[in-house]
Design a protein around this nucleic acid. Structure first.
Lengths: 256, 256
DNA sequence: GACATTATTTGACGCTCCGTCATATGATTA
DNA sequence: TAATCATATGACGGAGCGTCAAATAATGTC
């Protein structure tokens, strides 16, 4: 399956379809090369060689190396959004749905640690300065989509009476807090810092616990004091992300 | 004043002192260049020209460009640690001291946004892969120092009975949660994403509120429900960081 | 002070990689 | 088939990193 090919692409003339297809081929190849040899080894020449087109052709698709990497990022964020939508659509309480988003985020970053690195690279000013305004806009729009998805869910919770006495500002703060906790937590957990040596237990559990505490603090019903949060975690995982969890455990068995 | 010159440096033979001094000059210059023209414009040639030494001499001090940037990072983290120690030493409740660390972190990142960018760059694998094992070790040791400082403070809180029924694992989780929230929050707040356009209020306030909520959730006394947290914020700022806050407001007046 | 020896500095050079553009190749139409 | 247009190519210029033999300065010796 070619990721990122939208349905309407099938209706385009042959030529344009070929171009779109090649664009995906280039991105697939670049992603594979990063996975195999790391970002530092990624060069336009090597990509060209791998896809069996010349460098000039690559530059017909992407205006710069940074542009290519950013496009890769956008694809990743799109995949993340798909997971988020699945989580958001879970038939349960608003709090369960919001919690599911947290799990989706953790799962994605554990399944694709190198994509996270890419996102980090694009966040770097040194790279961002070389991006076209449109590409920056594209990425911003995707991040906006994610935030909006979370905000809508908080809106649902307020409407359902699951969060008591919340003004707009507090709603913003909840999303910001939840999001930044996940963001910072994943960055910490997957950084080279050997957390174990510092006496830390694996990050996921801590992240989950802290997220639940934060939601408790905002009074988001039902509180974790009357919920078996461990059971909730496994229930959400199997109901929404069985495929992803399966991949993850396979990888762990493979590497361990 | 030359930052990073330790006291014992004065006792070294003249030659070694000169070398240390030049090292600081190079770092100062590189930092100034990043502040003025951005990381993308930073080249070894330009640094050499600016300090009026040749490129080869720069390479006598730093084994690579990445090594230089990492050294810059280490200096920054050292400055951060100094702020943290000041916060940790505040004569107040354990919760006030912990909260002060949060303020210190926010202040530092607002006063030195470009240093934050540097830290982000060094977190990137593309850069980290080119670092010597010793430099990575140096940076890790500094981060360890920070974490340990926080852990000790949580230890104080447990001992003083300010946090109820906490095992080691929970202590880890508190530090991890607080830290990742600050980390992710600052990254979000200072990223290019126009948070305002998304209806977000400035990040600092949200970060402060969320941090307090998290500490509440862990039952860290005295709870924010019986404290005027806004007053606490300003009290800590003026007691510990009046100089920094002054700089910050000056800058804001200057730019606005 | 003159010379020998050691340490440090220098910048020209090799190398890698990005991005361009004139040319070559292939597709489409008359 | 020939003319025209679209696309692909890779040689080339330029930027910047890191090296190293030669030049320069510092130190030690008589």
């Amino acid at each position: 399956m070619i990721i990122g090919m939208s349905a309407q692409a099938d209706q385009l003339p042959r030529k344009q379809r070929e171009i779109l297809q090649r664009e995906q081929l280039i991105l697939d190849t670049a992603q594979a090369m990063i996975h195999e040899h790391g970002y530092a080894q990624l060069t336009m020449e090597r990509i060209a060689e791998a896809v069996e087109y010349s460098k000039g052709t690559i530059y017909n698709h992407f205006s710069s190396k940074e542009d290519l990497v950013c496009s890769l990022c956008c694809r990743c964020v799109n995949n993340l959004i798909a997971l988020f939508k699945r989580a958001s659509g879970f038939p349960g309480t608003t709090r369960e749905r919001f919690s599911a988003i947290g799990i989706a985020y953790c799962l994605y970053h554990h399944l694709n640690p190198l994509d996270t690195q890419n996102i980090l690279i694009v966040k770097t000013n040194a790279v961002r300065d070389k991006l076209s305004a449109e590409k920056v806009q594209e990425l911003n729009a995707l991040e906006h989509t994610i935030i909006q998805l979370c905000m809508d869910l908080v809106g649902d919770a307020i409407e359902a009476g699951d969060i008591p006495s919340v003004d707009t500002q507090t709603a913003d703060t909840i999303v910001f807090g939840f999001w930044s906790q996940l963001y910072g937590g994943m960055l910490l957990a997957q950084s080279d810092i050997p957390l174990d040596q510092l006496g830390f237990h694996p990050g996921i559990t801590m992240l989950w616990n802290n997220s639940q505490r934060l939601l408790d603090a905002y009074g988001w019903q039902p509180l974790s004091t009357i919920t078996d949060t461990d059971a909730l975690f496994t229930r959400l995982c199997s109901a929404l992300f069985s495929e992803e969890v399966c991949k993850l455990t396979q990888e762990e068995n493979h590497h361990g």
